[in-house]
């Protein structure tokens, strides 16, 4: 069975939306964090791991998520696998940061 990320020739695909947006600071930062983690100097993560974590997303979520939301999901997944971060820690940090504002 074809998996959700394997899009070549996917039936029912429509016209291409050619509108573009400038990346927000948040998107750029997600990109930068991933790039740093994958850099030869750190190599905490491989691009192949990033891809694998994205491919393993639940198919409906894969189709609906924005590009960098997928990246962030993958960063969280791989960092959790490697014992660098846990989801609970991240959730806690989100609460802590948002309470400060």
């Amino acid at each position: 069975m074809t998996r959700v990320h394997d899009r070549g020739g996917w039936p029912g695909s429509g016209p291409i939306d050619k509108s573009e947006h400038d990346l927000s600071w948040w998107e750029k930062r997600t990109d930068a964090i991933a790039s740093l983690l994958m850099s030869p100097e750190k190599r905490v993560m491989r691009v192949d791991e990033l891809r694998r974590a994205i491919e393993d997303m639940e198919p409906a979520r894969y189709e609906q998520s924005r590009y960098y939301a997928k990246w962030l999901h993958a960063i969280e997944t791989i960092m959790a696998e490697k014992g660098v971060l846990t989801r609970e820690e991240i959730d806690r940090k989100v609460r802590e940061l948002s309470a400060r504002r």
Binding site: R46, D48, E49, R51, R52, E81, K82
Partner: peptide
């Protein structure tokens, strides 16, 4: 080999 790299292997 990406099939190994994707799971933390050395490829």
């Amino acid at each position: 080999n990406p099939e190994s790299l994707a799971y933390g292997g050395d490829g």
